[in-house]
Design a protein around this nucleic acid. Structure first.
Lengths: 122, 122
DNA sequence: ACCAATATTAACGTTTACGTAAAAGTAATT
DNA sequence: AATTACTTTTACGTAAACGTTAATATTGGT
């Protein structure tokens, strides 16, 4: 049962202390406390990994919070579960759009690249 | 040779007028002028499409501007060309990272989904 | 017991990417 | 020609996601 200090976690994920505390402020993380010190569990780590991935994909932290909160409490309420499922579907669609975007942009970059690697005599 | 007004373009790409003017302010777009009015060419359209894709992928507009500017002027200077190629490589790596992220997040979402669609009797 | 290293909260500052009037000129329509 | 619809610039406002002191505990090691 490992527990990490805030600096450990920050280093591991290459974020600042401020970021971790901020994420806690907005309800994304809820580490234990030993006295006043934060202690991050393995689950907290996994959660942070997920958060950072979503963030890299441009997902607003507010929406992410809603999603995680829903996930945390959905069992108690079938209506909430329904809401969660809809959110998941929306996210999926956005992600598929992003896959398209990536493919398209990669295509264009390749085009640029070719254009400059061997300059045309047009 | 189609030329579009700002409202046309805004509707076509589902952005606001403010956005298009803002993009011009920061040097992403440079539409022609007929008098004081902006007229967007087919190239401007393609450029905007590219811009919006990159934006959806979380690319900062400043970086995007640098990339496009480099692309616009690289022919004149082999050093600039080199710089462009490096930017492209960096972008590519970021995009590959995003592909990984998407795969991972989609995986997690699927996990959530299954978890809630048919609740376990654990 | 002491001291450096690390922890805490609180609060104001900053950047990005626009939103939102306001005031005024121009174009299109009747 | 008059009205409506669209356009322009200027400028202040805002939400998100932290950065950056500052002022104070707490801890871990000697």
């Amino acid at each position: 049962m490992e527990r990490h200090t805030i600096t450990d976690l920050a280093r591991a994920f290459d974020v600042t202390l401020r970021t971790l505390r901020f994420y806690e402020d907005i309800g994304l993380l809820k580490p234990e406390r030993r006295g006043t010190m934060r202690l991050y569990s393995k689950q907290d780590k996994a959660r942070l990994r997920f958060i950072l991935r979503c963030k890299r994909l441009g997902m607003p932290l507010g929406e992410l919070r809603a999603l995680l909160e829903l996930h945390d409490t959905a069992r108690q309420d079938p209506q909430q579960t329904q809401a969660l499922l809809e959110k998941l579907r929306a996210r999926r669609i956005a992600l598929e759009q992003q896959q398209e975007d990536i493919a398209a942009v990669l295509g264009e970059l390749r085009f640029f690249d070719e254009q400059y690697r061997r300059p045309r005599k047009t």
